[in-house]
């Protein structure tokens, strides 16, 4: 099933972009001459949001907690991002009981390709650096066809991890200051502490530690605090 997830994520990404295009029904971007607006190094808004995927899974699954808060500060065409999340999860099978809990933090910069959208809607592309710390424990039974069976418990704590992400997605105004957004993530270059006791199976915020590249997809609901009532300035007529 895993092999389909990458394709599914890409599909979602295209759907997101298509979804954003629907939202642009009443905006004619061709009429906007972006060259007349210069870079403003003034924070325009602060937006804070929560990942709905993790929230739905937390509410619907037993022994699973995944909560992620995201925030951005809009400065001209850029978003300075801070994201913080927690994961606590128990994976129980016939022969294993694996528990992971940890936190992660992502920091990065997104570039908004929609420079002069009156509502501040965004179609963005960016990079992030992420780091996390997690604890792992495993109770397992293993039966070797030649040498017999073993039952054992292993535990490792404070495993540090870091990785990079390339992100793209959209942020669209729903109503008032409530926003929706999708973020597709390509996660790569994972490095984590190694131990001979137990190989971490899942890294909070990254996913399966053995995957050199991971796709991720988040759905956010945001609340935006504008620093100014003024909407994005549209150019004057030529």
């Amino acid at each position: 099933m895993l092999k389909y997830i990458d394709k599914l994520s890409l599909f979602f990404l295209f759907l997101s972009i298509a979804n954003y295009a629907i939202a642009q029904d009443d905006i004619d971007l061709e009429e906007i001459d972006s060259t007349k607006i210069e870079f403003e190094f003034i924070p325009k808004s602060f937006r804070v949001g929560m990942d709905m995927v993790g929230l739905v899974k937390t509410l619907s699954q037993n022994e699973y907690t995944e909560l992620e808060i995201t925030s951005d500060i809009a400065v001209d065409k850029y978003f300075l991002n801070f994201e913080y999340g927690i994961l606590e999860r128990n994976r129980v099978g016939d022969s294993i009981n694996y528990f992971v809990n940890g936190t992660f933090l992502r920091v990065g910069l997104d570039f908004n390709f929609l420079k002069n959208d009156p509502d501040g809607n965004a179609f963005f592309f960016g990079v992030k650096y992420a780091l996390g710390k997690s604890n792992h424990s495993l109770d397992f039974n293993y039966t070797d066809p030649i040498f017999g069976s073993i039952s054992e418990s292993r535990e490792v704590n404070a495993i540090n991890a870091r990785w990079f992400e390339i992100n793209t997605g959209i942020k669209v105004k729903l109503f008032w200051e409530i926003w929706l957004g999708f973020t597709g993530r390509l996660k790569f270059a994972l490095k984590h502490d190694n131990t001979i006791v137990l190989d971490p199976y899942e890294i909070p915020g990254y996913g399966f530690s053995e995957q050199k590249v991971m796709w991720g997809f988040d759905y956010y609901v945001f609340y935006r605090i504008p620093f100014s009532k003024r909407k994005t300035q549209l150019p004057t007529e030529k």
């Binding site: 099933m1 389909y4 997830i5 599914l8 979602f12 759907l15 997101s16 979804n19 629907i22 939202a23 029904d25 709905m52 995927v53 739905v56 899974k57 619907s60 669209v172 105004k173 729903l174 109503f175 929706l180 999708f182 997809f217 759905y219």
Partner: peptide, 21 residues
């Protein structure tokens, strides 16, 4: 935001939740 956008949003959300793990 239009109704069909909300429908798309929640459809993607639940399909995504079902498939990720």
């Amino acid at each position: 935001m239009k109704k069909k956008q909300l429908i798309i949003f929640f459809a993607i959300l639940f399909i995504g939740v079902a498939c990720i793990d």
